[in-house]
């Protein structure tokens, strides 16, 4: 299993645990009829879906899709590493800044959310570029 896949999968598992704790807390709060800040909902969904599910998909795809060429399994490995870094920095930024920005807005804070958006979107497109040529085949 390539190092990048291991990084994707281990980070995904960390997000799985973290998002499950947050989701569990939100569920318990609903059960006890306590109010929670509504902004925690999208934060929870994105920790679960981007942090866990998407990183799992990216990591497994990077590992098991057909090799790019003989002796060169991955195309643009540096770009794939960049996608990994951008996705995680962007997501972490969102997880920290979004609740902060909604609950205690401060000038300039919103621009960190813009940075988070740019990083995550760039990560998605960079991963698309690295994986594109490996999605091919000849069977029916």
């Amino acid at each position: 299993m390539p190092l990048l896949t291991r990084c994707f999968l281990k980070t995904a598992i960390l997000y799985f645990v973290a998002s499950s704790c947050l989701g569990g807390y939100l569920l318990i709060a609903v059960g006890l009829q306590h109010t929670t800040p509504p902004v925690l909902q999208p934060v929870y969904w994105h920790m679960l879906l981007v942090g866990w599910l998407m990183q799992l998909i990216f990591g497994v795809a990077y590992w098991m899709f057909p090799p790019f060429a003989k002796g060169q399994p991955h195309r643009y490995p540096a770009l794939a590493w960049f996608a990994y870094a951008a996705l995680n920095v962007g997501l972490l930024l969102r997880v920290v800044v979004e609740p902060w920005h909604v609950m205690r807005p401060q000038p300039g804070l919103g621009w960190l959310l813009v940075c988070s958006a740019v990083l995550q979107v760039a990560a998605g497109w960079m991963f698309l570029i690295t994986i594109w040529t490996r999605i091919r085949g000849r069977g029916r």
């Binding site: 920005h101 959310l113 497109w125």
Partner: peptide, 17 residues
């Protein structure tokens, strides 16, 4: 995924700015 993330990114830009 890439196009959907772009749409999400634009909404996040709205939330930030």
């Amino acid at each position: 995924l890439a196009v959907g993330m772009l749409a999400g990114g634009l909404i996040l830009v709205q939330k930030g700015t």
